[in-house]
């Protein structure tokens, strides 16, 4: 029982990160129908930025905030300079994001080198243990931050005017444009959200997982799988998909063999694509139609 609880906790922590990254995917997807393959790079970039700022003497919280804002701005720039110029062609957009990912990775390798960079844990390296289950303090930060970010995102999308306009764009871009919603701005917001959420995921996991220039790729792939599981384009589905993926992976590693960990992720992906291509909750657009 202790073992099970330990596996579950570790799984949920990893799952939170997958979930946040998956939510980032949905933000861009909903605004543009582009799958942003540079999604993982946002997390990597934010973690490395924060690590450098801390090394330069900035207080931890300030460093994290600056890193998240910078990465959000980088994403807006990417949309403005690279994506918007390609028009509304989705395939072209996807290929551009692959290119952007490679460029960001290369830049990170130039700036930070190829070694991993440490970021201190937010409230010290200790851990809390109860009934034999050990939870590192940073894991609590991950769980808490994810819950807060998800709640804010939910409120933004359902309660605010801007959020409603954003969702209208996701459901039917043309109709939204005819109603006077500036779709260009909504695309920028989509990228800003994706960058910010990805950046938050990056900085909260960095003290546990350590980030280096190529860490974004693996995170991006797992986030993408979480999206498929949850239903592409559905933010709640993305979060659920992430948690499910994280927990399954860790339980499989614990009870079957750690060699199966990655295999489980891809078996889940295949199962969902074959049996339930719409994911757990179905596609956002389709569900609302």
């Amino acid at each position: 029982m202790t073992e099970f609880a330990q596996y579950l906790i570790s799984g949920l922590v990893v799952g939170c990160i997958y979930g946040l990254i998956a939510t980032g995917f949905t933000a861009v997807y909903n605004a543009t129908h582009i799958v942003n393959f540079a999604q993982g790079e946002s997390s990597m970039l934010a973690a490395l930025c924060a690590a450098s700022l801390v090394l330069a003497g900035a207080p931890l919280l300030l460093a994290i905030a600056v890193a998240v804002v910078v990465v959000g701005l980088v994403n807006i720039l990417v949309e403005r300079l690279a994506i918007r110029r390609s028009g509304t062609d989705v395939t072209r957009g996807i290929i551009i994001t692959i290119g952007v990912g490679i460029v960001l990775q290369g830049l990170a390798a130039l700036v930070w080198g190829t070694d991993a960079q440490p970021l201190p844990a937010f409230s010290g390296p200790g851990s809390i243990s109860a009934y034999g289950v050990v939870v590192p303090r940073q894991a609590l930060w991950v769980l808490g931050t994810t819950a807060v970010v998800m709640a804010l995102l939910y409120l933004f999308l359902t309660r605010s005017f801007l959020g409603k306009a954003f969702r209208a764009c996701a459901m039917n871009g043309q109709a939204a444009a005819l109603m006077g919603i500036p779709t260009g701005l909504m695309r920028s917001i989509g990228f800003l959200l994706s960058g910010t959420v990805g950046a938050v995921a990056g900085v909260i996991i960095a003290p546990i997982a350590l980030m280096q220039y190529d860490s974004g790729v693996a995170l991006g792939i797992k986030g993408f799988v979480a999206c498929i599981i949850g239903g592409f384009g559905n933010p709640i589905g993305a979060a659920l998909g992430g948690l499910l993926l994280g927990a399954t992976e860790t339980l499989a590693a614990g009870y079957i063999s750690s060699g199966f960990k990655n295999a489980i992720a891809y078996v889940l992906l295949l199962l969902f694509l074959l049996v339930r291509p719409g994911g757990l909750l179905g596609e956002f657009g389709a569900a609302k139609r």
Partner: peptide, 20 residues
């Protein structure tokens, strides 16, 4: 003996097993 993937970011499950 427990194994982890070279790019893995969390080895808690394997070490939990070893703890037992």
């Amino acid at each position: 003996t427990e194994v982890f993937g070279n790019a893995d970011t969390d080895m808690t499950p394997q070490l939990t097993k070893i703890r037992g």
